[in-house]
């Protein structure tokens, strides 16, 4: 199985729920693999390929968000109006209503909280692996994960009809 086959799904899902933008997730997934290929010589196997790709994906998303914020401010100044997205960008991608609600509730978490929840629960990364992605100590990430889950639980409470 190729590296693309083994990892593109998890990289795409990670980016999809991080930014709640399907087009951005696709573009960034391509960017991640292109970037990985370019920096292949720098990969010495100190971490797993999965961790390495998620680290690239996380930094690609941070950069894209920074660019987007800059563009949004520039466009907002030109047009004098709010450029926020009104429609649910996950509609049509995520058929399950619970997952759509989950995606909306995750908007209320900060980037690090969203990242740890996705890496830990969706992608199954350990705290040590998450530490390699985010460059944070394991203990801190345990605490962040626990806090993020609690925040998400409160966000979903009252909105979910199980």
């Amino acid at each position: 199985m190729s590296v693309i086959d083994a990892h593109y799904r998890s990289v795409y899902r990670f980016l999809l729920f991080l930014g709640r933008d399907a087009h951005l997730a696709e573009d960034l997934t391509q960017e991640v693999f292109a970037s990985a290929w370019r920096s292949l010589d720098g990969f010495h196997g100190a971490s797993s390929v999965r961790t390495w790709l998620h680290r690239i994906a996380y930094h690609a998303f941070v950069d894209a968000r920074r660019r987007h914020e800059r563009d949004k401010v520039a466009v907002g100044m030109l047009e004098g109006r709010d450029c926020g997205v009104v429609d649910d960008p996950l509609a049509g991608i995520v058929a399950d209503e619970h997952l759509s609600q989950l995606g909306r509730a995750m908007e209320h978490l900060d980037l690090e909280e969203r990242t740890v929840l996705l890496l830990h629960y969706s992608d199954g990364l350990s705290y040590r692996e998450m530490g390699e992605v985010l460059g944070r100590p394991d203990g801190t990430l345990k605490w962040v994960t626990s806090r993020a889950l609690e925040k998400l639980r409160k966000q979903l409470a009252g909105k979910v009809e199980p």
């Binding site: 799904r9 999809l16 889950l149 639980r153």
Partner: peptide, 16 residues
Amino acid sequence: ADWVAGRLREISAIEP
């Protein structure tokens, strides 16, 4: 919290 964690795990079923 277990239920929320379970929903998060379901994200892995989404196909690109």
